[in-house]
Amino acid sequence: MRKGRILFSLFLIAVAAYAVRSAWGWTFKAGLFPLAVSIPLIVLAAAQLLLDLFGKTETATGPSVDLEFGADVPLEIARRRVTNVLLWIGGFILLVFLLGFPGAVPVFMLSYLGLQSRAGWWQSIGITVAAWGFFYIVFQRVIRMQFEAGLLQSWLGL
């Protein structure tokens, strides 16, 4: 956790330093606000970094007024599950890119439910059909949202 915090502070310093470097060359009007924000950010992130490196270990039960992850799962399993779900999310975006939303929704739903959640195939098909029906009726028919065609459809001229 300490290593993660150090890396996050370094990330903040890098982002703010990039902002300062970019804003330095801009006009006064354009650069004033980003500079006014990023310079204190560097100072605060550096202070946090120093505290994490050389300060006492934190003893507060919760460091922030925000959600805390439940930690009942062994670390190794947790890491594997995090990677899994992030890959699935990335996969969904890739599917939307390739097939467009209307095509990606049933493929993703069915494969996630069948392969990841290990739901029975009939249950997976039922939920997929219901979700796709909801998507089609609400977003395509009622709200009439325009969805970009996927790359595959464009290639195939569909």
């Binding site: 903040l12 204190p40 950010l41 605060l44 992130a45 202070a47 946090q48 505290l51 300060g55 934190e58 507060a60 919760g62 460091p63 922030s64 007024v65 925000d66």
Partner: peptide, 14 residues
């Protein structure tokens, strides 16, 4: 208000 303790304050403002 969203950070607890001195370090929490630094994080909140950051």
């Amino acid at each position: 208000l969203s950070g607890l303790g001195a370090r929490g304050q630094i994080r909140g403002f950051s």
